[in-house]
Amino acid sequence: MNGPVVHDPHTLPSNDNVDPYTFCVDLSGQWFLQKGKMIAYYGRISFDGIGHGPLDRLVAASFHSPLHAADWVVAQGKGKMLLADRAFDVNSYDLDDGNLTIRSGNLLAFEPSLSLKQSIIPGFVTLLGTGKFVAASNGPVHFVEPPVRVDPQALVGWADCPSPCHHYDHRYLKGFLGGLRSLTGIGGTSGEEHQFDFVGAGTVLLQSTETLMEERDTGAPPPGQPGVPGSGGGPGGGGQLPHLPGGLGGLQRRLGL
């Protein structure tokens, strides 16, 4: 009987998948990665929080999301680093002067040549520029072309197309009976009354399950801002955790409150 494949620093792939669930980064320089996604590494690598002083220049150049700063670290040094996330499928993608928006929890790591910005859709981040990034999905990723309507939970991200809009099934959401149904659950709802509607040219990335990674309340805009959707508790809002006043959400989470 043959034993399992044994990897050492020379046989590990360079910036490629070791198996469908593990990705190996050949680090020489810096990479951004989400906290807790590193499982092992060879070589000398240090991990520093985004707030680390000496990294200010790098962060200023390629990290524009204060809301997510608490979840990200910079790995710097030389060596091979293995990334994985809860045994989810992991894939790397190359962006060539492009843009791609992805659910913040699905993004594991990216090269500093890309720049990360917060999407105007809560819970998503946008990557701009040229470079490689690593993303996880529960089940393999499927690429679909718009026009398409997708389930919010199955959406991983999208590239090169205008932001999606919400689409509601009015037969269920309007009217007395529909309201009663969605409020009480009596009569049942199909669970598919709400979709994201994509139009235009581009690619939409879907995962083959609707179980999400642990939702972290990072993308929600600060409450009570005029003109910002999602901040006033409109339809589809609610269910957000109460926040301390003064936009302390990030700090609150960092301190584990």
């Binding site: 906290k35 590193m38 520093d48 929080g49 707030g51």
Partner: peptide
């Protein structure tokens, strides 16, 4: 930094 929540995650 770890104590004030700015740790490296690792």
């Amino acid at each position: 930094r770890t104590v004030i929540g700015e740790g490296g995650g690792e």
